[in-house]
Design a protein around this nucleic acid. Structure first.
Lengths: 199, 199, 199, 199
DNA sequence: TATTAATCGAGACGGTACGTCCGGTCTTAAA
DNA sequence: TTTAAGACCGGACGTACCGTCTCGATTAATA
């Protein structure tokens, strides 16, 4: 007797369809926004049966998120913070581009959609932490640890708290719109951070 | 001459229905969670026609959000930070309860839902800032300004940035789950903040 | 204690509104067809509150029907069949215009709508018989009775059955579209009728 | 290439659902009457999604009408008028049961509803003529033609007009209630018909 | 190389909720 | 008191998608 409705065999998966689905999802997400996006539309755009989507992804969020990851993982994969020895400069080199991206209106929609999705679905949050956020925080902690060893930071500094301090305020301002986000803000933030973290 | 299909007259609004809708929305939001909540269910629970909801609110998000505001505004209205002169103690008195609320699993579901709703709908964000966030930031800035005048903080401190520093890291950790949220974290954060903000 | 929701006092009725309602109903019936007609639309067009319609008419059908009657009663009131002594000629003078009206596409829509309404609502049927159909059948029977007295028709002829024979076939052909309706048909029908009714 | 939002494929139609819908429609039509019948109720009773009804029928009228046709087509399929050579007897055998059915209160409600629906919707009228009325008129004409050949009817008789004479008066009396419908009426009508149609 | 089993595109299906429309009732202010 | 205006509860409308379920028709691994 054949197994019914079991997990499918990844070996037989149609790579062509997988790509078409991710592409369609990405396109539609930017065109319509996440909320107005539907599985049916993705299937239609990708020229794919709905079942092919449901076979490989558990939810709309998972598809879109996968598309987002596929687009960002490459770039994120190669992320490495500079370590010039000048902590202030290095932090500026980190926060300035971050501020720039957050201030970009094109990033606005998809960024907020993904962010909302992540904070509502624990599964997606876990995956986001594993594949994107985690590595970023890792290298950030590494850089701070390096500064710590160099005596630029307090010896007993809690690096997890430090990382929250680095990214939290910027993230807060972006999500809640408490003020403008620009280079000056990034620079001022770096100064405040250094005061907070120094020995 | 009669206007056709125009905005309704608030003077003729049925207060009884308005209350019933907000109450039903609040109840259902906690029972089912925001995502599973439907306008139809709210209308049924409130003993109200669907049209009466659509007449006064543009979306499900707006209703739930209004219910949330109605529930929190009172308490928020009376918010005043202590000003004992001891800034460290006052900040702890601010951040400890905040951490406690964020760590409360009961707050988790509705909090994240509202947060996601806010960051996706600019209208709701604006209203949130006007009615809840704004006043909170205001009193926070006031307290910091008071400390500034007392010479406890840098004279040239940017209070908006300072506020981001106060609330941002905690918010970040809560949304992205980068670490545990407890009293120790709140206290450590206060110490770091004082270092960052001191003259 | 005042009587609540009792029958209204016709003496205080606003004639201006009554006219406006009937006119609006007639206009909208021809513009939209009976099925798409709504009480709300009539009230809006007439510049009248919905309640004013519900106060004086029990249903949409009643309003439209009343409008139809108001428009046709005058003309129907003055109906009198010719009695030239030549029964064949007089029947032709009766059926030819009838055929012409039924064949008129402009009459098609409203005619069928009224007809359908009548056959579905016993109340309307009763009123239709009382105010329009009754008088018509009456004068028809009168003319046949006159011919009967003149020896042109069978003495024992059942006049009610005779009237069915006069109007029934034409009506049948019109409603079910079993064939073309024109002057030739009317004339042929008259010939057949005479054979059927003669002594 | 896929056609978008086009007509569905009848080959994939679920016969089980089709039957359930027609049955539910027939039941509800007799229970509630046509006017109080809703698509939602049909779908619920049939255990079917609303969309499945809308996919295959354009309107409530079409469904009910289809149910009516499905119920009556069998019986109508086997209809054959007797041809005993005695035209009077054969016509009585035709009109007496017809009168009986029309006089049956149980037939009243659904009969009038279908009749009204037919006369308002040209599409339904066409289908009614094709599937029920047409065959009936056909066999009627055949019987009359047979009598014509036997010299019992006028040679130049217009059979279409003759058929209107046979069915029209009865139909007229039924729809407009111009008099009682019973066996005596049917018999008297047959006598009048024979006079009208004889050579 | 033929067989066989899974995936695929397609789309009908039972459902749920949507947002709109309108029925019929009730309330209010003006006439 | 009636009226115009229109908010109200209720409920059906017709639509959009959901996630499941057949259907052949590929298509890729096995025999």
């Amino acid at each position: 007797m054949a197994r019914t409705s079991s997990t499918p065999d990844p070996a037989r998966r149609n790579e062509r369809s997988r790509q078409a689905i991710l592409t369609a999802a990405a396109e539609l997400a930017t065109e319509l926004g996440y909320a107005k996006l539907t599985i049916e539309a993705i299937a239609a755009r990708a020229g794919v049966g709905k079942q092919t989507i449901y076979r490989w992804w558990p939810s709309k969020g998972a598809v879109v998120f996968d598309a987002f990851l596929a687009a960002n993982e490459n770039e994120a994969g190669g992320l490495d913070l500079p370590d010039t020895g000048d902590l202030a400069a290095d932090l500026r080199a980190l926060l300035r581009p971050a501020a720039e991206q957050l201030a970009d209106p094109a990033f606005e929609r998809v960024g907020r959609a993904i962010s909302a999705e992540i904070q509502l679905d624990p599964t997606l949050l876990r995956e986001y932490r594993a594949r994107l956020l985690g590595p970023l925080l890792e290298v950030t902690r590494d850089r701070l640890r390096s500064a710590q060893r160099a005596g630029q930071l307090a010896e007993d500094l809690d690096l997890d708290l430090a990382v929250d301090l680095v990214y939290g305020p910027l993230h807060y301002r972006w999500l809640l719109g408490t003020g403008p986000i620009d280079q000056a803000y990034a620079d001022a933030m770096v100064e405040a951070l250094l005061r907070a973290l120094r020995p």
